[in-house]
């Protein structure tokens, strides 16, 4: 175990089945690496090539899917390289979203445990969580599960040893540098520090998901009464 890989020189292009190319810009979670993912993501959206179907951005990589009847791996790699070699138009400021969160004891079952294990008060944990600005790095796991990077260093904890069942939709969860607001009732091993009344799955046909990858998020504290009124 723990074999070291030979250094790879990024970007790395790998064929996937008969329909995709995976473009990797690094092998760790890092803002600069993610910025390159966003750059190719934007370039593909602005200038999709013939046969392009969709692009799936992740932390350090982006998958480019194409129609194998119209395109092949070599063509897709060629197009991606061409886009990367060109200067892209200036990036507009990322959208900033405000997500409402209630930290009431009943809706924040792990808040006290988080506070205890890092030696802070619950209020100090809340303050630190609210002070940070988060980046939408990717979606994954389930519909609308947006992985937000930016949890302050002192709030970073490894996930719990065992998953909790039936964690409610809308839970504000943290693990390591990541935060997410769940959209479904699901088991999770992440720390549940609050509940949000903000809907990530918006039910708006024109904008069904609140965030796009690359957007920014800040949390705003609400009372239990505001939560109940807004949910």
């Amino acid at each position: 175990m723990n074999t070291k890989f030979p250094e790879r020189s990024f970007p790395v292009f790998s064929p996937v089945a008969e329909h995709s190319v995976l473009v990797e810009f690094g092998d760790r979670i890092d803002r600069d690496i993610h910025a390159q993912v966003l750059r190719l993501n934007r370039a593909l959206a602005a200038a999709p090539f013939d046969g392009f179907l969709e692009a799936i951005p992740a932390y350090a990589s982006i998958l480019i899917r194409f129609d194998p009847l119209l395109c092949d791996h070599a063509m897709a790699v060629g197009k991606a390289r061409q886009l990367l070699d060109h200067d892209l138009p200036a990036v507009s400021k990322p959208n900033l979203h405000e997500v409402l969160v209630c930290y009431d004891d009943a809706l924040a079952p792990d808040l006290a445990a988080v506070a205890k294990s890092i030696g802070l008060s619950c209020e100090a944990v809340i303050k630190a969580h609210l002070a940070a600005q988060y980046d939408v790095f990717m979606y994954g796991f389930a519909p609308g599960y947006a992985y937000l990077a930016g949890v302050p260093q002192r709030l970073q904890l490894p996930r719990k040893p065992a998953a909790m069942r039936d964690v409610a939709a809308g839970s504000v969860l943290i693990a390591g540098p990541q935060c997410l607001v769940s959209t479904l009732t699901m088991p999770t091993g992440w720390w549940n520090i609050g509940r949000s009344s903000t809907r990530i799955l918006t039910d708006d046909a024109h904008k069904p998901f609140l965030f796009d990858v690359g957007d920014r998020v800040r949390f705003r504290r609400i009372s239990r009464a505001e939560y109940e009124a807004g949910k």
């Binding site: 723990n2 996937v16 092998d27 932390y59 350090a60 990589s61």
Partner: peptide
């Protein structure tokens, strides 16, 4: 796998 599972999550496809 012959190495620690420390890769950042990457896209999955059907298959």
């Amino acid at each position: 796998p012959q190495a620690a599972l420390d890769m950042p999550s990457e896209p999955i496809v059907r298959g």
